[in-house]
C-alpha cells in the first residue's frame, strides 16, 4: 500500500508539471501541450513506466479492498454508542471513500482523455500532432465538469494529506524528528498538489 502510494504520489507531481503547460499563453500552450502529449505516447521509456503506473493503480486498489474487508471482519459487531471519532481525523478514517471517489474519477478521466487520444480520431494541430489541447479546453467549458473535477481533486488532496505521512510510517520511518518533518512535507505536498490541479479546470473555464 505504502510503496504503491508513494509511486503514485511521485507520478502526480510529474503529471501536474506536464498539465501546468495548459496555463501558458494560448498559442504556445496549444502546440507545446500537444507536442508533450505526443512525446508521452511515443517515447518507449515513458510507455514502459506507463504500464508500471497502470499496474500500480490496480495493486493499490486491490490492496485497499483487501484491507477494508479485513478491517470489516476484524471490527466485530460495532458499538451502540460510538464516539471513537474524536481520536482521529475524518479523512484518515475515510481513505477508502476518498480513494473510491478518486478511482471513479480516474475511470472518467481515462474515458474522456486517455481513450480518445490513444484509440480515437482526433484532429491534428499545425505541427501535425494530435490536438488533445482543444479536447481539454472544450471539456472544461462545462461547469458541471469543472465541479466534478474539483470534487475529485479535493478528495485526492485529503487522501494525500493522510496517505503521504502514513506511507512513510508503513515503510518504517520512526525517528520522531524526521516523522515531524515528513508530516509537514506531507501537508505542503497535499496542499500544493490540490491547488495545482484545481487551478487548471477553473483557469480554462474562466479564460476560454
Amino acid at each position: 500500500m505504502a510503496l504503491t502510494g508513494l509511486f503514485l504520489s511521485f507520478f502526480l507531481i510529474i503529471h501536474l508539471i506536464g498539465n501546468l503547460q495548459l496555463l501558458l499563453p494560448e498559442e504556445q500552450a496549444h502546440l507545446q501541450y500537444n507536442l508533450y502529449s505526443d512525446f508521452l505516447s511515443t517515447n518507449f521509456l515513458v510507455q514502459l513506466i506507463a504500464y508500471v503506473l497502470y499496474a500500480t493503480i490496480l495493486l493499490h486498489t486491490i490492496d485497499a479492498i483487501y484491507l477494508t474487508i479485513k478491517a470489516k471482519k476484524a471490527s466485530g459487531a460495532g458499538y451502540v454508542k460510538d464516539k471513537r471519532n474524536r481520536a482521529s481525523k475524518w479523512y484518515a478514517r475515510q481513505m477508502m471513500l476518498l480513494g473510491s471517489i478518486v478511482f471513479a474519477f480516474l475511470v472518467i478521466h481515462f474515458k474522456d482523455f486517455w481513450y480518445p487520444y490513444k484509440f480515437g480520431e482526433l484532429p491534428m494541430d499545425a505541427n501535425g500532432n494530435k490536438d488533445l489541447f482543444s479536447l481539454v479546453i472544450t471539456s472544461f467549458q462545462e461547469l458541471w465538469y469543472v465541479i466534478l473535477y474539483a470534487v475529485a481533486i479535493l478528495s485526492l488532496g485529503f487522501h494525500l494529506l493522510h496517505g503521504f505521512f502514513s506511507a512513510f510510517r508503513s515503510v518504517g520511518v520512526h525517528h520522531p524528528k524526521y516523522n515531524q518533518l515528513i508530516k509537514s512535507i506531507g501537508v505542503v505536498f497535499a496542499i500544493s498538489l490540490t491547488f495545482g490541479y484545481l487551478i487548471i479546470p477553473f483557469f480554462i473555464y474562466f479564460n476560454f
Binding site: L67, K70, A71, S75, A92, S166, R169, V171, H174, P176
Partner: peptide, 28 residues
Amino acid sequence: FGHCTNTEACQVECPQDISVLTIAEMNY
C-alpha cells in the same frame, strides 16, 4: 485483527500514551 492505517486514534485513547511511532518502529 485488522491492519493499521495510521489513523493514530490508538495513542489518543491509550492509558499509557504509547507512541504511534512504535508502530513505525515495528514496520522498520
